[in-house]
């Protein structure tokens, strides 16, 4: 190291001594739990975007379109048999996915179905058990269908597909930017929480003041990022319109998928309207 550059900076005495410090115990549960939940969310989005998620080898446009169709048919149907057929179909698709993804999807589907069941419980007590079972199974199927779509498709592809379905550009823009900024601001918040954890070396008597400080900084940061993005968009000539440059190309798997979904539609016409 260069000794010639030595400048006189007087170090205070306390900085030259080794700190003889015994920390007091303190509760850090909130910070630790926040760190864990943020890590989970960011890891989930990053996995979605890295393309490492399970792939259902069909065209993303078809997947989005037929998932919407499935949800609409499920909501229209009055046939319990049709709902059961769809549930079986979805479980068959699920069985081709990785165990980790199956657990994730089923956790949400079963959770939501159970919640619906609890909400519908008074109907059962009044003797209308059919509606309760029907709505619960419909919810299970709808959530599973969306879960399969989100676990087998990149979110960026889903948002770009929306353009084909004449969804307004502003809606696609908001969705696109939201996903991107959840990761960026999530990373930033994560580092702030790490910093709070590292600097909390003793008993923090004003934990909520520190947390509100983090929230305030986050607000300022997001505002700054939004302004930067707006200027960057202006500089790059973005007019708020999304364009699609790729053409629709179907493979054999896509035609099979179309056939299956046409079959589902026919089943709906046969059973579903009864």
């Amino acid at each position: 190291m260069d000794n010639s550059r030595e400048k006189i900076i007087d170090m205070p005495q306390w900085l030259l001594q080794t700190e003889n410090y015994i920390p007091q115990a303190d509760k850090d549960t909130f910070v630790n739990k926040s760190i864990l939940s943020l890590l989970k969310v960011i890891a989930r989005i990053k996995t979605q975007d890295s393309g490492k998620q399970a792939k259902l080898l069909v065209n993303v446009h078809l997947k989005v379109a037929f998932t919407f169709m499935l949800i609409i048919l499920l909501s229209l149907t009055r046939s319990f048999l049709f709902v059961i057929i769809i549930n079986v179909y979805l479980i068959v698709i699920l069985s081709f996915m990785e165990a980790e993804n199956i657990i994730k999807i089923l956790k949400i589907s079963i959770g939501m179905a159970f919640f619906t069941f609890v909400v519908m419980l008074p109907a059962v007590l009044w003797g209308n058990s059919y509606s309760c079972i029907m709505i619960t199974t419909k919810i299970f199927a709808s959530i599973t269908a969306v879960g399969i779509l989100s676990h087998t498709t990149k979110w960026s592809l889903i948002t770009s597909t929306l353009k084909r379905f004449f969804i307004p550009d502003i809606f696609i823009l908001v969705l696109d930017i939201a996903i991107k900024y959840i990761v960026m601001l999530g990373d930033f918040t994560l580092n702030m929480l790490y910093s709070l954890k590292l600097r909390s070396v003793g008993k923090n008597k004003s934990k909520y003041t520190s947390l509100s400080g983090i929230a305030g900084t986050m607000f300022l940061k997001s505002k700054e990022m939004a302004e930067d993005m707006y200027y960057a968009m202006e500089c790059r000539g973005f007019t708020g319109e999304y364009h699609i440059y790729s053409k629709l190309k179907f493979k054999i798997a896509d035609y099979i998928y179309i056939l299956i979904n046409v079959g589902i539609f026919l089943i709906f016409l046969y059973f579903g309207r009864k």
């Binding site: 700190e19 410090y21 015994i22 920390p23 007091q24 115990a25 303190d26 509760k27 850090d28 930033f188 580092n191 702030m192 790490y194 910093s195 709070l196 954890k197 590292l198 600097r199 909390s200 070396v201 003793g202 520190s210 400080g213 983090i214 305030g216 900084t217 940061k221």
Partner: peptide, 23 residues
């Protein structure tokens, strides 16, 4: 808790982005 706090006192970390460190 106590062990972690003592380690954090002994090893100080200056983050790459100073914004994340100031609240």
């Amino acid at each position: 808790n106590k062990f972690a706090k003592l380690l954090h006192q002994k090893i100080g970390f200056v983050f790459q982005n100073s914004d994340t460190q100031l609240f």
